[in-house]
């Protein structure tokens, strides 16, 4: 694709001051995204996915220190925006969907009020116009009898319906970028499939850029154009979804893919792959490859800075080894 990226993240770091020292939660990550693309950030819990999303939205807790060589959204330098300017962007040109919709829905206001507010805050429209848009979007996210829902309160809806309302709210102003952090993790598999399909359809229809954060490799494979694999605050591998799933290189990515049973591929009952050990502490100085305590092919050199390798134009990974296609790590 030749169009300019709508989002460019360069060397983003996020430090969290803790009693025991500084937690290096996100350690120099890069990625970019174009309109109409879906990028999935995948990794296990604690790898820095949520902090990365919050940083993009300017929603990091105040105590955290965030810096980047570049944090560019549609020509806007996000690092230089005032809190007021960030508030103006949020919900308008960029919007976020969280795992638990109740964290963003106010239990004291009706669905209708909250949806309309999302538009009235950013656009010079009348209440009647805002109401019409709210009904339109509830319909778009597959909520039947939309008009009668406007007067309902969030707690009157099921988890799946609440997540649909959240999506409608995020889309009220037709954002250019939408960030969804584990939007279906708390939902049943049937509802998960419906919500993901809805997100994918709306993303295409509105030609938005979407970042979807998840720990679920199945979700990633089905929805991503591009994938960023995070481990311990770093991007260890990134590439097109096809490359990551059909031709993974990094020992961690390969390890993860072997851990999940795949119907039709894994023999029922046989041992699944596993990654021994646990994620290292990121408090204090972190050097070399953070995966080395768990990596089967680690060597002494892994404790020094590790080079990035590019097996293709849309594929990169970070490892001391030049890992050939298909070979098992």
């Amino acid at each position: 694709m030749t169009t300019e990226p709508i989002l460019k993240v360069e060397n983003l770091t996020i430090d969290v001051p803790m009693a025991q020292g500084t937690l290096h939660a996100v350690r120099g990550i890069d990625f970019e995204l174009r309109r109409g693309e879906t990028l999935c950030i995948v990794g296990e819990s604690g790898s820095g996915k949520s902090l990365t999303s919050l940083a993009l939205m300017g929603l990091l807790p105040k105590k955290m220190r965030c810096k980047a060589a570049g944090l560019d959204f549609s020509g806007i330098d996000l690092q230089r925006q005032t809190p007021k300017a960030m508030r103006a962007l949020r919900g308008d040109r960029m919007a976020m969907i969280f795992q638990e919709p109740m964290t963003s829905l106010n239990p004291a206001y009706t669905i209708g009020d909250q949806l309309m507010e999302a538009l009235l805050l950013h656009r010079p429209v009348s209440k009647a116009e805002a109401r019409a848009r709210a009904i339109e979007l509830l319909g778009k996210v597959g909520i039947t009898a939309a008009e009668s829902r406007l007067g309902q309160y969030p707690h009157q809806l099921s988890g799946g319906l609440r997540q649909r309302v959240m999506i409608a709210m995020a889309l009220m102003c037709e954002p250019e970028l939408i960030i969804a952090d584990e939007p279906t993790t708390a939902l049943d598999v049937t509802i998960q499939a419906q919500i993901l399909r809805l997100l994918a359809d709306l993303q295409r229809e509105m030609n938005m850029a979407m970042i979807l954060v998840t720990h679920d490799l199945g979700v990633v494979a089905r929805i991503a154009d591009k994938v960023v694999v995070m481990y311990a605050g770093e991007v260890v591998e990134n590439g097109s979804a096809r490359e990551i799933f059909e031709n993974p290189r990094h020992p961690y990515t390969r390890g993860l893919l072997r851990c999940i049973p795949v119907p039709g591929k894994t023999k029922p009952g046989e041992h699944l792959g596993s990654i021994p050990g646990i994620v290292p502490s990121l408090i204090g100085k972190v050097e070399g490859c953070a995966f080395r305590s768990r990596c089967e092919v680690a060597e002494d050199a892994c404790s020094s800075p590790v080079p990035v390798r590019r097996p293709g134009t849309d594929h990169a990974y970070r490892c001391i080894h030049d890992i050939p296609e298909g070979a098992s790590a």
Binding site: A241, F245, P263
Partner: peptide
């Protein structure tokens, strides 16, 4: 079973043909 998302990048999110919610 249709809702199961196997990690296959050649497939998209399935339509479960499940209407209304629980």
């Amino acid at each position: 079973l249709e809702s199961v998302l196997t990690p296959d990048p050649n497939l998209s999110v399935p339509d479960t043909h499940l209407g209304a919610s629980y």
